[in-house]
Write a protein that binds this DNA or RNA. Structure first.
Lengths: 214, 214
DNA sequence: TAGATTGTTAATCGATTAACAATC
DNA sequence: TAGATTGTTAATCGATTAACAATC
């Protein structure tokens, strides 16, 4: 039934995968059901079954889903049955935190290159990786046919770098800069601006308890 | 028309606000239109007008929206016309990066407290803030009536802390731990797991260029 | 077998878009 | 005025949910 998968469905698969992996690690059981998974995640069981049905039939009536089998299938669907090398651009606070983060390894990614435009930083090691000059970025990415970058540079520099990335094989950008990026349609962009997430929640906060009101 | 605002509409308002603020800073013009704003953001002009119409009438036929006025209105709608004190929990790599991040100040937030469970870290200064023992977290949050936290602790510790937060005035959690949190319905949770964002994009990557396939 | 749970269909629900009268 | 753009309505589009036959 692989025809036209809604992106919103794709967006839930990593959530399912993460929950299933946690189940597998805790390892109480070999199987789970759409009901149990949905309960954990606050998602309806019907939605989980519908989402999975876009890709095939992974369960058994009466018993549900074999956890490890479903994990393996989701990894294949999402192309996570390999390790994606990722270039990290920007060696500031966020770049340092990401380069040192050990949560990528077992989830399909490896920070393979680290670039910064500050000559004083070039050559320094961060998370076992040498900082390379940004002037070499395009050449390196093209040579390595890299498809994904994490962009952790100041807002003012982000669009210019995105323009350079458009000249490479890059097709996915995780953008930490608090600015919208304009890119050609073949490049996917996901934004990671914590303030946007926080501002989305203040709407619901109790303003009678608010401090610092002016 | 303030009756039942869809959360998906709320989610776009901070995006609009960020783009408008950038426009105001660059300061070429005093007004903009739903068409211009939508073009920048890849959103239809009709959607922008519809979203705003939930809250009032902010534009003028023929001329569009006064940028600074719309910014002010959005800030009021989102309760950003004040400074929200936020507790940061976890002083690891991410906690350090966030505590040192200077992008909160002008967007409605201030990291006011920093907690960690490592006695060796307690007392150290990070981003001008002393690390406090996690054992004092609940008491401090209750005394200060804090409503928002950023949770940057290991996955294994996140749910336990969330349970403690449920005993306080906290109503919003920005969760950096790569695990789903179960919280009472009055607490809003937004997740910030970069790997989830990255895994969502690999579906679209060119697997013929993929490295490390097994 | 009896109970449980899938995959799928059809109905419902909600969000987006097109179009346009109103009007600056 | 003429052109531009709003706010809103109705139509369209898409996503979620309820229900159930199939079957392990």
């Amino acid at each position: 039934m692989l025809e036209e998968i809604p992106d919103i469905v794709i967006g839930r698969l990593p959530i399912y995968l993460r929950a299933l992996t946690n189940m597998a690690v805790n390892g109480e059981k070999l199987t789970t059901s759409s009901h149990e998974l949905g309960e954990r995640l606050g998602i309806s069981s019907a939605q989980i079954r519908k989402d999975l049905s876009h890709f095939g039939e992974f369960g058994k009536q009466g018993t549900g889903y074999h956890i490890n089998y479903l994990i393996e299938q989701l990894r294949q669907i999402l192309h996570l049955d390999r390790e994606w090398p990722v270039a990290l651009i920007g060696a500031g606070h966020i770049g340092h935190a990401l380069a040192s983060y050990n949560g990528f390894q077992h989830r399909g990614f490896r920070i393979a290159w680290l670039f910064d435009n500050d000559p004083a930083k070039v050559g320094q090691m961060v998370g076992g990786l040498p900082i390379q000059p940004i002037t070499e970025m395009v050449e390196t990415l093209n040579r390595e046919k890299t498809q994904m970058v994490v962009l952790a540079v100041p807002a003012a520099a982000a669009q210019e770098i995105a323009d350079q990335l458009a000249q490479t094989y890059i097709r996915a950008i995780l953008n930490y800069a608090p600015v919208h990026l304009n890119v050609p349609p073949h490049i996917h962009v996901r934004h990671n601006d914590p303030v946007i997430q926080m501002q989305r929640m203040t709407f619901y906060l109790d303003t009678s308890l608010a401090v610092g009101s002016r």
